[in-house]
Simulated assay, not measured.
Amino acid sequence: MNTYSKLPLSLVAMVLSCMMVSKAIANDAPAAASAKPKAVAASGPSDDDLSKALLNKINKGSGDIVIRTGDLPTGNPPPQAKPETKPEAKPKVAKAPAKPVEKDPIEVVQWTYMDGPGGPENWASLGKENLACMKGKSQSPININVDRAVKAEMAPLEFLYRPSPLSIVDNGYTVLVNYGEGSNVIAEGRQYRLVQFHFHKPSEEAINGDRTDMVAHLVHQHHDGSFLEVSVLMSTKPPASTRRYLWGNDEVKGNSLIQTLWNNVPLVKGKVETPPVVIDVNQLLPADRGYFTYMGSLSTPPCTENVLRYVMKTPIYVSPEQVKNFDRIYPMNARPLQPKGDRLVKESTGN
C-alpha cells in the first residue's frame, strides 16, 4: 500500500481544499475580484466525495494528488459566479427650456423740435449717427447778415422742373412731398435731381436776424450722393407789386400749390397718400431768382454736412389762412440758428 493512504482523512481533506482554493484563485482572480460571493448549490460534490477521490488517486500510485474534474463523481457542475449586472440607466428627462427673464422695455427717445430729452440740444446724444448735430462745424440754419455777404457775379440756378403726380405724407415732423423723377436743378455746372420738398414754421433761415412765416426746403441729390438744398422763404406780407386803389388793393390770393397740398394732407401720420392729382413745383419759385449761398448741413438728424445751400432772396406770398392751417399741424418745427463761424456767404448779383 502506498504510504499516502495512511494519512488521516482530515489532513487529506485539508490539503485538497487548499489546492482547490489556490487553483481557483489563480485561474479566476479577475472574475472573483469583481464578483459578489454566491451561495454554493447543494447539488455540488461534498467533502466525503473529495476525500474518496483523493484516496483513490493515492492508492493508484500515480504520484500526484491533483484532483481533476474527471476524478470527481458525476453531478451538477460547481456553480459559476455570475457577472455583476449594472443597473439599467434611467432615461434622461428633457428639461423644459428656461423662460427668458422679462426686462423692462428701454424707452426710445425720439428727436423733436421742443425742449426736453429729444430736443435740438440733445440730438447728438440720441445716437452716434447724430454726432454732427453737436460737433459739426458747418451746421444749418444760420443767420445771413446781408452786409457781411460777399457780392459776386454767379451763374443763376437753372430750375429744370416738370409736373409730377402728388405723393404726400405727414411724417411726424413736417408735411413732405416726394417728387417724381425727371426734375433737376443745375448749379455750378452740376446737375442735382429733385427728390422731395417739405416745410418749416417759422423759416429756419434768418435774413438780418428776421425769420419769415414759413419756408419750403427743396432737397436735391447728385448721383455721387451729395446734397443741394434750395430754401424758398414764404411770407404773408403782400408783394410790393400789389396795386393800391382808392377803394382798396388788388386781391392777393394764397399760393395755389400750397392750397392743393393742404387739401390732400393725410389724416394718418406716416401714411403716404397718392391722390389723382398732378402738381408743379415751379409754383413755389419766386419770380426773382437771386440767392444767397453757403456750405451747410441738413437741418434735421443726422445733420449731415457738406450740403450746398441756396436761400432765395425774395419770398413767395402765402395767405395768413394757409399759414394757420400748417400751424394747426405743426405750430413750430424749426431748428435753432447755428453758429456761422468763419464760413463764407455769397450773394448773387445781376440775376
Rank of each mutant, 00 (worst) to 15 (best):
Ala149Lys: 08
His217Arg: 09
Leu344Tyr: 04
Lys90Gly: 03
Thr3Glu: 07
Asn27Phe: 12
Lys23Pro: 01
Pro315Glu: 06
Gly225Ile: 13
Asn208Gln: 11
Leu246Glu: 05
Pro87His: 05
Leu257Val: 15
Asn59Val: 10
Lys6Ile: 01
Glu251Pro: 02
Pro156Gly: 13
Ala31Asn: 09
Glu88Tyr: 02
Lys324Ile: 01
Tyr245His: 13
Lys36Gly: 13
Asn122Val: 01
Lys86Leu: 02
Asn208Met: 06
Ile142Leu: 09
Ala35Tyr: 02
Val252Cys: 02
Pro97Phe: 01
Trp123Lys: 04
Val307Arg: 01
Leu285Asn: 13
Cys303His: 03
Val169Arg: 09
Gly116Val: 03
Pro315Arg: 08
Ala155Cys: 00
Asn264Tyr: 03
Glu205Met: 14
Pro266Glu: 11
Pro339Met: 09
Met14Gly: 12
Ile144Thr: 06
Leu54Asp: 02
Arg243Gln: 13
Gly270Met: 05
Val146Tyr: 03
Ser319Ile: 08
Pro302Asn: 09
Val311Asp: 02
Ser167Ala: 14
Val109His: 10
Tyr113Gly: 02
Leu7Pro: 00
Thr304Ala: 08
Leu261Tyr: 03
Ala216Arg: 04
Glu88Met: 05
Ser43Tyr: 11
Gly248Ile: 08
Lys23Tyr: 12
Pro37Gln: 04
Val93Ala: 15
Asn178Pro: 00
Ala152Val: 15
Arg148Asp: 15
Ile142Phe: 04
Met332Glu: 10
Val232Phe: 00
Ala41Phe: 03
Glu229Phe: 03
Asp64Arg: 07
Leu344Gly: 04
Lys23His: 10
Asn122Ala: 08
Pro30Gly: 08
Ile329Asn: 02
Asn178Ser: 07
Asn249Trp: 10
Glu158Ile: 04
Glu321Leu: 14
Val272Asp: 06
Ala26Ile: 09
Ala33Glu: 06
Met20Gln: 07
Lys99Pro: 00
Ser235Val: 09
Pro79Gly: 14
Leu166Arg: 06
Lys137Pro: 00
Asp210Arg: 15
Leu246Pro: 02
Pro302Val: 05
Val307Pro: 00
Arg211Gly: 00
Phe227Arg: 12
Glu321Met: 12
Gln139Tyr: 07
Asp210Glu: 15
Glu204Gln: 15
Val252Pro: 04
Val268Asn: 03
Val307Leu: 06
Ala33Arg: 12
Val40Gln: 02
Ile279His: 00
Leu285Lys: 13
Lys90Tyr: 03
Pro45Thr: 09
Val150Glu: 15
Leu126Ile: 05
Pro301Cys: 01
Ile67His: 03
Glu321Pro: 03
Gln221His: 11
Pro30Asp: 10
His220Gln: 08
Ile186Asn: 11
Ala206Trp: 04
Asn351Lys: 07
Leu166Met: 14
Ile258Met: 10
Lys151Phe: 01
